[in-house]
């Protein structure tokens, strides 16, 4: 979570709100912020750290580990209509890569801004080639785009 805090400006530029959730109490969240996270991120945690003691929220998102009694690493990108556009769930020992989350948010924002008229091929980054779905593109993606080229 310190990585999210450290890159919070980027998320703010994209108009993204963050909510973090674990089974820890608000009190533990405060002490974790004060004692450790604020030192790693060089600032206080700038977003809501939610407490989900019995896993009620985690269960509905499919990320609550009943045996261990903790949440898995679950990351959800939710659009302004409240629709989940992307999710990633990992077991605890490996951390996330925030730059990939940011890339996905940028791609979903691009698609939304064009009302779906433009879509983002594999590995898309802002400024890179987009595709315009339609009858003319069927069977012709190879003329427009290749995974072997840097578009």
């Amino acid at each position: 979570m310190s990585a999210v805090a450290a890159n919070y400006e980027t998320l703010q530029e994209l108009d993204v709100k963050v909510i973090s959730v674990s089974v820890d109490s608000q009190f533990v969240h405060k002490v974790w912020n004060d004692q450790e996270l604020s030192k790693m991120a060089k600032k206080d945690i700038p977003f809501h750290m939610a407490s989900d003691g019995p896993g009620n929220v985690g269960k509905i998102y499919g990320v609550y580990d009943e045996i261990a009694g903790v949440e898995l690493r679950g990351r959800f990108i939710i659009d302004p209509d409240g629709v989940i556009q992307a999710m990633e769930v990992m077991t605890p020992p490996v951390g996330r890569q925030l730059s990939e989350t940011i890339r996905q948010i940028q791609a979903f924002q691009h698609v939304r801004a064009t009302k779906g008229a433009e879509v983002c091929p594999a590995g898309w980054m802002p400024g890179k080639k987009i595709l315009k779905p339609g009858p003319a593109l069927v069977g012709n993606v190879w003329k427009e785009w290749s995974p072997l080229e840097d578009h």
Partner: peptide, 10 residues
């Protein structure tokens, strides 16, 4: 836009 992040524990 909302980024909702679950994690194992503080």
């Amino acid at each position: 836009w909302v980024l909702l992040c679950f994690y194992p524990g503080d």
